[in-house]
Design a protein around this nucleic acid. Structure first.
Lengths: 97, 97
DNA sequence: CGGGCTTACGGTGTGCGTAAATATC
DNA sequence: GATATTTACGCACACCGTAAGCCCG
């Protein structure tokens, strides 16, 4: 499982539309489809119900969405903090090894 | 930033020893070193102070460690939940699209 | 037919391991 | 000289985009 796969999953879940989700991530549809397929295969789970042209969250996918969002938010927050804390503690690097 | 890089970071931070950290992750030292370098370069930050053969967390790295752990725990928890919830809701897949 | 997801396919990039170089004790 | 990290290098795998295939309105 990668952060990229989670991002794709959340985007598709929100848009309920693979093409739009892919566009919102500046990705080709095939890449988004592959990411979802890989995520599903890795866990042996079906995240979406493909009924006709309609692609909607399955029960499992619905249960997973909040967790995926939480992980992504945590990662983004950590990344931002890492950049932000940079300048603050840059001159504080006195170490006693 | 990838989950793999975070895993390497946490392992090195815990072991304070690149070789042991790499072994604990079943990786070559070079791979671990590259992961840390990439993580540092991506954020323009120095996570570790390399003084002699001693490699220890810098101030920035110390501040980042809890966040990295939180992200990893969240990801692992989400992954485990996804596997665990599988059997429970597998037969509940009746959808009305 | 038309829109939408999937599969096939080729290219590029990234990550990994082996091995050599560098540095410290 | 031994131990530990970094750098160099080559390879394999994975990701992405283009394009064709398939299915449902």
């Amino acid at each position: 499982m990668t952060l990229t796969q989670l991002r794709v999953f959340v985007a598709v879940a929100r848009h309920e539309h693979m093409t739009r989700a892919a566009e919102s991530l500046h990705l080709a549809q095939s890449a988004a489809s592959a990411a979802i397929t890989a995520l599903e295969a890795e866990h042996g789970v079906q995240l979406f119900d493909r009924v006709g042209r309609c692609i909607r969250l399955s029960a499992v996918g619905h249960a997973f969405l909040p967790d995926a969002c939480a992980v992504l938010e945590g990662a983004d927050r950590a990344s931002a903090k890492l950049r932000g804390v940079d300048r603050k503690t840059r001159l504080d690097a006195r170490e006693t090894c």
